[in-house]
Amino acid sequence: MIGYILRRFGAAALVLFAISVLVFLIFFATPGVDPAARIAGKNADPATLEQVRASFGFDRPLPVQYLMMMKHLFVTHDLTSFVNRGTLVIPQIVEAIPVTLSLVVGAAVIWMVLGVAMGTLAGAMRGTLIDPLVMLLGVFGVSLPVYWLGEVVNLLTQKQLHDSVFSWVPPLGYAPLSQGVGQWALHLLLPWLTLALLYAGIYARLLRGELAGALNEDYVRTARAKGLSERRVLLRHALRCSLIPIVSLFGLDFGALVGGAALLTEVVFGLPGVGKLTYQALQNLDLPVIMGTVLYAAFFVVLANAVVDVVYARLDPRVRRA
């Protein structure tokens, strides 16, 4: 198992390296683009351009350029934004990370609990009215787009009903953990629920299907013939095996969300996270920032995938030797 984990993370490091090379090539070795002008910022004077060119090694071979770029990104942290000259890229991202992480981790906990509970309930209650009801609720969650649901939630909690039922809802925005866990959670509660609703629906439907399949498996019949309780058969045998594909999907979703896919939720609820940062950078074609966030996103997607594979191996012994 330890060997497997080491191998897996070794592979992940390799993938990250490949991504960084690819991103570098796309941004700085694409013909027809002067990377120095991109980095020096809008309307930079020739002297500055020359200085950037020297400091990033744009007059030297590509491998050297790559290494110098990585040095600016990861060692000296002095890559600056192209639009807002003087604003450093890395601190911006570092500031945005906790916001995105808080949002996604909280939502993930909610949707996993909700999705697994709903999926198990529907899967175990097949043939009764509960199953279609729970699944209908799931479709409902899947069909509500975050940007619409988020705006409706805001409309109700910030405006229409803010003076009565929802007077406890704080204004939009993020409260860091340093202001206390209570404030932090209160600010994030509605974003969490909004983001989680979509995923809970997807996961509930997927799990129900898996569980329905597992309950028809021979091993479940064996477990029943052993004289185990229906509850144990359901949870320890059928559900345990059905969770395997759920975990792999979770890893992908979680990685993508932390990598910036929670953008809509962040924008709607005014959370200054990585998604929002990327969104702004894209609007201004702010290449240094985009490169920073792309590498950051890649890091989380790859990391999440590696973690999932390790958890997967823990859940499914058949994978371990592969």
């Binding site: 021979d218 091993y219 019949r221 064996t222 013939a225 045998h237 095996c241 395997i244 012994p317 058949r318």
Partner: peptide
């Protein structure tokens, strides 16, 4: 006790 036909799938894989 009961034994079923297909031993390949009769045991919980995990």
């Amino acid at each position: 006790a009961m034994i079923f036909q297909d031993p390949m799938t009769a045991l919980t894989p995990v």
